[in-house]
Write a protein that binds this DNA or RNA. Structure first.
Lengths: 216, 216
DNA sequence: CCGCATCCTCATGGATACTG
DNA sequence: CAGTATCCATGAGGATGCGG
């Protein structure tokens, strides 16, 4: 690849920059936060190191990411530029579109809980669940992610020490189906585990959210 | 490519289906409307025929497109499935993201006016410009596209015979900059040509629209 | 270890010619 | 017109090496 489409079309030009294999997955990792070379390699399930080097150079030349030398020099950190960070919207849209592919289950694919930090905001995008200061946890593969009601919508992140009103423990496909609104807590009653105030969970998982289609 | 990422991640699974080279551009063409093999080949500026065949098969197997045999058989038409048509949102998001790349100008790339039928709805996405029954034309490369105020937002299409309140003639980058809101009619006064009621054009090009960043 | 370069193999992309 | 078949260049993927 790396070959330009040669079309004066927004989609073609966007793909000239981020369409190469691995590029958008690198951006996904950096949407979680700045990362070192090795962290990226780890989060991308073992991309070949030469490819990661190439892609990082391409993305830097394209203005999507930047290299930062940490204070003590010698340590290079990769981070999104402001423009690169705006890829969150296209990526969120692709994540919502992929819902029919996700509710099929893992099918042998590798699951990394930090992916929830990108997937859950995409599925909850922009909706405002409640005025209350509700915070719940979602535990997948033994790792807990915190959902928190904010004025702007649902905030997603690692637990920040605050008390959780409830914790939902479930397999990854169930969590994503719940977040996308194609599965309900009642549907999954026998397959999930809930501790604490179940109504706090319903605040999140029964509120309106971006429509996704499951026709696929 | 065609190789799966092997990650249980919405973005990775989406790219497993539409991430191969040419795939999203094929979807872009089909967002304009169903098309024959030769029309796709034409609209993709001469993609190799074997690649087009491969991609069409992949997309069909992935549930994104379907082959329709026309009534008199012998003529195959390709069209998006309902799920495939939902790629409009991710594609729109990428088109909005690409604005900084587009306002740089053509730079030798091929421009096809039918691309405006996809680009303009992306840039006007969802906003409601006016209650009036205003319709204007945008002429690029001698081809005119019609913009029409509707309850749902801006409707974009080929002229349907109705009388146009105004016609804007300009180079493609100017039209896209105007639609994205990073250029104004006043900025471009000397570079564009306006016939008819200029205020009708302002109804479209000075209304609020999705924010795009030009930091790139 | 971390960041990257080099080599090698093989799948994929791309251009052309060809066929029903 | 709608694809196949063929050939070649390129890129992906994996292993390894190397300086810091």
């Amino acid at each position: 690849m790396s070959r330009d489409y040669g079309q004066y079309c927004g989609l073609a030009r966007a793909l000239d920059v981020v369409g190469d294999r691995w590029n958008l997955l690198i951006v996904r990792q950096l949407l979680i936060g700045p990362a070192r070379f090795g962290e990226l390699r780890e989060g991308l399930s073992g991309i070949a190191t030469n490819l990661l080097t190439d892609r990082l150079r391409d993305l830097e030349a394209g203005g999507v990411i930047e290299r930062r030398l940490s204070e003590d020099s010698n340590a290079i950190t990769y981070a999104l530029t402001p423009w690169g960070a705006q890829l969150r919207e296209p990526i969120n849209a692709l994540i919502r579109w992929s819902t029919p592919l996700m509710i099929r289950g893992l099918e042998g694919d590798e699951f990394r809980p930090d992916g929830l930090l990108v997937a859950l905001p995409a599925l909850f995008a922009g909706r405002i669940p409640a005025d209350q200061a509700v915070a719940v946890g979602v535990t997948v593969d033994g790792v807990t992610v915190q959902l928190q009601a904010t004025d702007a919508g649902v905030g997603v992140g690692w637990p920040d020490g605050r008390e959780l009103d409830a914790v939902l423990t479930a397999e990854a496909p169930f969590v994503l189906g719940l977040a996308a609104g194609v599965l309900s807590l009642d549907d999954l009653a026998a397959l999930i585990d809930i501790e604490g105030d179940e109504s706090a969970l319903r605040t999140f998982f029964e509120a309106p959210r971006p429509s996704v289609d499951v026709t696929g």
